[in-house]
Simulated assay, not measured.
Amino acid sequence: METLSMLPLRLAGFHSKKFLRLCVQWFTSAFLLALASTSQAEYEVNMTPGVTDISQSVFSLHMVIFWICVVIGIAVFGVMFWSMFKYRKSQGAKPAQFHESTTVEIIWTLIPIIILVAMAVPATSTLKEMYDTTESDIDIKITGYQWKWQYDYINDDVSFFSNLSTPQDQISNETTKGENYLLEVDEPLVIPINKKIRFLVTANDVIHSWWVPAFAVKKDAIPGFINEAWTKVNEPGIYRGQCAELCGNNHGFMPIVVKAVEEPEYLAWLAEKQAKAKAEALQASQVWSMDDLMAKGEAVYNTNCAACHQQNGMGIPPAFPALKGSPVAIGPSEDHINIVVKGKPGTAMQAFAAQLSDVDLAAVITYERNAWGNNTGDSVSPQDIAKAKGN
């Protein structure tokens, strides 16, 4: 085995002038490209420090290791370029013929060990802190669906879905895109600042990944498993993220929005959500008119169904069949209710029994049976949904 001390002489026969000229050309091109990029838009490639103690620890650790790698890179490539220049063929350098050096072997074994230990100590400390989910103030279960998130405040009887709220016109390039295009939702996750929040992350269908860069939290959501993470936000604000695991054709349409607020504002929001949940439970026993069901059903459809079946009901065959004139939408209402409530095995049609309230289900089915010219005249009631669920 040859040692590092042989490198200068082994490189002596290399055409160093040509190589150095290519290096200069490459670095010049890279510099001009970077300069052009900065003139057109903000050019950022580094991590964000975030708004939690953990995220800032991760950022600091990243920067320390980055500069260690920079120093190592400068040292290694410096020796290489100096060797090619100093011991080049045009200067008459002759390669030496020798082998092992015990001293060199020991040195280049010990130095990497010392560097790795120096990096491992702070990294291990940060990882231990990241995985410590004990003594949380609030527990929130996060469930990934195709393609939305469900948030359950375990000890507070609050549960809701968070859906993409970017208008379809923007997605279809029919109107100007908003500031938070594809990163806005109808119901953000609301948490108080200066409280330890434990996340219990799972999924209902396929693997998703709940990722908020500002918190340094990225946790896979796997069906049948619960992964844990936590955060403690120091500053009020709105923080955005996305699903970070390819989970289907609408993977890019399930954003995450977290709203961190002062504790009094959080408690007021929580009380409002609890009151709203009670009011919705009472609505299930009311009698709804066709007009009210159609109006509510259109809103529910656009939020939960239009991504697959399209706003005009034409679907995206064969994966997502049309509802306009379909045997399901104009056939017996019992069959229609059953497929929406329980889903259809072997297809992309999910069971919405646990995702929507009885009122929402009655409204959206009524809408589907009377929109786009279907005009069945059928009106589905929340009591019909409860019967289909077996309640």
Rank of each mutant, 00 (worst) to 15 (best):
E105V: 05
E105Y: 08
E105N: 12
I107L: 13
W108C: 04
T109V: 08
T109K: 11
L110V: 15
I111Q: 06
P112S: 03
I113C: 12
I114D: 01
I114G: 05
I115Y: 03
I115F: 08
I115C: 01
L116W: 12
L116V: 10
V117H: 10
A118M: 12
M119G: 02
V121F: 09
A123R: 01
A123N: 10
T124R: 11
S125P: 04
T126Q: 10
L127P: 04
L127T: 06
L127G: 01
E129D: 14
E129Q: 14
E129C: 01
M130I: 13
Y131G: 11
Y131D: 14
D132I: 04
T133G: 02
T133A: 10
T134Y: 09
S136N: 15
S136W: 10
D137H: 09
D137C: 02
I138W: 11
I138P: 06
I138A: 04
D139H: 11
K141I: 00
K141N: 10
T143L: 05
Y145M: 00
Y145Q: 05
Q146R: 12
Q146H: 07
W147Q: 05
W147Y: 14
K148M: 11
W149R: 00
W149G: 03
W149Q: 03
Q150D: 07
Q150H: 06
Q150W: 07
Q150E: 15
Y151A: 04
D152V: 08
D152C: 04
Y153S: 05
I154Q: 15
I154N: 13
I154A: 13
N155K: 14
N155F: 08
D156R: 09
